[in-house]
């Protein structure tokens, strides 16, 4: 087919630029439709339902609710404790994961015997499915026949078994500990990759300037890890705060709401109380919080990029 025929066939695409735009739109359209259907629609529906009385069981009170659902959620006696648990759960988890991940990455960056095996083995907790990890830990922590209580009592560390997941004093801490155990390998792998990319010249230069190991870590290693740290910390802040499944498998928010977080509250509103309106309003509040976090991340990331360029 010669060029003149091609131009005639696609007559409406007169210029090369028009053809390029048309081609790009054509290629992107299926993805855009799927995004709109699978992400856009549910998102808009949640925001819409947040302002309406929506109940799965009854339509008698259906209609516009204004800010009624938001007021209902905030007045719920479980809201502030759940918000506090969400903040503690998220911050302590992420800090613990980062510290453990960085420590293990530094160790695995050293030339030690069996390094390849350790690098592979450390990833195992992250590969175990959540349901398997959760069930295994809850059996291990059981006060009657759990292996952890067995060792702690037989070694004389504790006098009587501790109900780690059933005692309000221990439950949240234990859940956070198990979450750190599960998530820190992700940090290890990411930070290890970044550590390996730091040029040796920087350490040599620092050494010539008289910097000891600690100062090298402080002034060479940490600044070089800043970019990757920022990404994984912010991703995990979001992932951890919206996490539902791990807490649900371990404690279902108990004992007596001691580990209840906001995602669990959303679940209870929609699946236990059938109050989709309240569930949507709490989801919208969380969405707003996450969006603010993302804006903060974006600004911080841009600042780091500018600093790096300058």
């Amino acid at each position: 087919m010669d060029n003149s025929k091609k131009v005639r066939r696609f007559g409406f695409l007169r210029t090369r630029k028009q053809r390029e735009i048309s081609f790009s739109v054509g290629m992107l359209l299926p993805a855009l439709i799927f995004l709109a259907a699978l992400i856009g629609y549910p998102l808009v529906k949640v925001i819409h339902d947040a302002f309406y009385n929506v109940n799965l069981l009854t339509s008698t009170s259906a209609g516009f609710a204004g800010l009624g659902n938001f007021r209902k959620v905030i007045a719920d006696p479980n809201f502030y404790p759940a918000l506090r648990h969400t903040i503690v759960w998220t911050l302590v988890s992420v800090v613990g994961e980062y510290v453990l991940g960085l420590g293990s990455a530094i160790l695995l960056n050293k030339k030690v015997k069996g390094r390849a095996f350790f690098r592979m083995a450390i990833f195992i907790p992250w590969l175990v499915p959540i349901i398997v990890a959760g069930m295994t830990w809850s059996w291990m922590l059981n006060p009657d026949y759990g292996v952890i209580n067995y060792f702690l009592t037989h070694l004389g560390i504790i006098k009587e078994p501790i109900n780690f997941l059933g005692d309000t004093h221990y439950a949240l801490g234990t859940t956070i500990f198990v979450n750190i155990w599960r998530s820190f390998p992700y940090y290890t792998i990411s930070l290890l990759a970044a550590l390996q990319a730091i040029p040796d010249d920087l350490y040599e230069a620092a050494s010539i300037d008289g910097a000891g190991k600690f100062n090298q870590f402080l002034h060479v290693t940490l600044p070089q890890l800043r970019s990757v740290s920022l990404v994984i910390v912010f991703i995990h802040l979001i992932w951890t705060s919206i996490n539902f499944d791990f807490i649900w498998v371990l404690t279902q928010g108990g004992p007596n709401y001691a580990t209840e977080t906001l995602p669990l509250m959303i679940y209870r509103y929609s699946m236990q109380k059938f109050d989709v309106g309240a569930a949507s309003s709490l989801s919208t509040m969380m969405l707003l919080g996450m969006s603010l976090l993302f804006v903060f991340y974006y600004k911080f990331k841009s600042k780091i990029s500018e600093e790096t360029i300058s």
Binding site: N142, P143, D144, Y145, P161, N163, L165, G166, D167, G254, P255
Partner: peptide, 21 residues
């Protein structure tokens, strides 16, 4: 009753009975 029963679910209580705990 063991004070831990206050936070046990059916999986634990059935298991405890079946194993003689």
């Amino acid at each position: 009753v063991d004070k831990n029963s206050a936070t046990l679910g059916w999986e634990d209580t059935d298991e405890n009975f079946a194993t003689g705990i």
